[in-house]
Every structure is written in structure tokens, then in C-alpha cells.
Amino acid sequence: MELSAILLQVLNGLDKGSAYALIALGLTLIFGTLGVVNFAHGALFMIGAFCSVTLQRLLSISTVTLDETKTDFLGNPAKITTPYVETWFGPEVGSAIIDWSVPLAILFAIPIMLFIGFAMERGLIKHFYKRPHADQILVTFGLAIVLQEVIKYFFGANQIPAPAPDAFIGSFDFGELIGMGAGTLMYPYWRIVYFLFALIIIAAVFCFLQFTTFGMVVRAGMADRETVGLLGINIDKRFTIMFGIAAAVAGLAGVMYTPINPPNYTIGMDFLVISFVVVVVGGMGSLGGAVLAGFILGILESFASMRQVIELIPGINQVVIYLAAIVILLARPRGLLGRKGVMES
């Protein structure tokens, strides 16, 4: 197998791995801080993706004018649609704004996701801290279905494209960069963006937890909630904020994923199951484990989809994540970086 082919698979695995890692990170934050198994987390990813779609649609709202000088093939005056943003900001800036709607959706999505996160935690999750995990699973699963159906009601069941800005269309030639010859290792620009974006978010979350007082208290709370509560620190309020942050992380992962995979209402569920596997393989409650497992499984998955590998072991591309999960869990009882006694009974 050629080196360039192997490198390509690593690169291919990175963007899916990034998505897994971001979702798993949020899941672990919620589990670690609140002790809640959140089956609605995939739905948050999906809502993020639809923030992209919504913003793109909002920006494209247009006025229609008739241009008498041109006619369409029926002889009627041609309709000219001009998006409001172009009317407001001028055609150049306006079309650039529309072109950049996906990255702009980050700004649009953050307040929305934070709000949804706060509302979810205060309105529903809060009441389930002391309930059995089975109840948490059922209620958040019910919520996931509801969110999914609401999105389906407004956006339909089909995938809706939300493309990347024109500047990022096309591929970067890694082959030329590392001297293996032009065209041997082409990698789409947007996927590079996605990977870097994921790294930034992950780094931001870790720094936030590591270097702020807020993060320190939360980490202490993750380790031993009761003691921190005894110190008279209002841990609940911080945990609410953590839930909002986890929701925002999942949402942003969804926002930026739309150019890679046009979203439809089921995208959240598709990611949820694998993200759970990722969280557990990483070790329940371990943030680093979640990120590590996300990338490992993402890369493994893309390796297993190589033609040569499939010819060698038929069907491996379908099962590799699960196979890896089984092997890892049997070899390491608590996943890659898990702690003893978390969620074992």
C-alpha cells in the first residue's frame, strides 16, 4: 500500500473523527458534571446543522423585481430576485455574506444553542439528576424524537445542502506540499477547516476547564460533587452553564459539518449511537478519552473503507468501529482513559 494512500485515509478519518470527538466531548461533559446520560445530544448536533440551513435561508430572503428588458422563454418579463442583504450592503458585500453563511452561522448558532441548552437543563434535565439512568435515557430519547420531528415538520425529510464559501471549494494538494508529486494527495479545503475548527473548540474547552476558576470548580464537582456542594459553592448554576456549553459544542460541530454532509432530520441519531460508543471506548467521564477515541475510531473507519482492506476482509468497513469497541473494552475494562466505578452498576 502506498504511503500517500495511507496518509489520505488518516486525513479522511480526521473530519469524521472531529465530529465524533466534538459530540463525545459534550456528552462526556454532561455525563461527568451532571451524571446524566443524554440521548438528546445527537439532536443538538442536528439543530446546529439546521442553524446553518436557517441562516442561509434567512440571508437569501429576496425582493422580486421584474426586468422588462429581458424575457424568459415564455416571453414574460424576467423575474430578478435580489436578496435583501445585497440591497442593504451593496451587491459585493451582500453576496459575500450569503457565500459565507455557514461560518457566519457560528455566531448565529451560539446564542441559540446556549439558550436551548439552558432551557433543556432547567426545564427537564434538572428533574432527572436523582432518577435512574433508564429514566434519563427514556426521557432524553423522547425529547430527541420530539426535536427531530419538529425539524422534520419545518424542513422536510430531505437533505438540505448548505455549501461552504466559494473560497473553500476545491482541494488542497498535500502531495505537492510534502513532495510526493502533485495530485497524489488531494484533500478538500473545507475538511481542513473543519479539523482545525474542531481542534480550536476542543482546546478552548480544555483551557476553559483548566485555567479558569469556573472550570476548576466544575472539575472538582466532576470528581466529587458532594464535597464541592459542602463548600457552599453553588455548583448547580455552574452545571447549568456547563450544559449550555456542551450543547453549544455539539451545535457548532453540526453547523460546520453541513458542507461535508448536507443535513436532514435523522443526522443526529446517526451520530448519537456512534458517539456513545466513542464516549464509552474513551472511558466514561474522561474528556481526554472521548477526544482520543473520537479520532481513533474516525481514522479506523476511513481505513476500513479502503478498497484493498475490504478485499482482504469483506464487510470490515461496516463493522470496524464496533469491532474496535469490543476489543478495546475487553482489553481495557474502563475504556481508554476511564476511571474506576463510574457507571459500572
Binding site: V37, V273, F276, V280, V281, I326, E344
Partner: peptide, 12 residues
């Protein structure tokens, strides 16, 4: 394995 680790093994 027990707990969630068991659940994920069966799922896998």
C-alpha cells in the same frame, strides 16, 4: 463488563 460498558458491548 457491567453497567454502560456492558450496554455498549451488546450494542456493538
Amino acid at each position: 463488563r457491567s453497567g454502560i460498558y456492558f450496554s455498549i458491548l451488546t450494542l456493538a
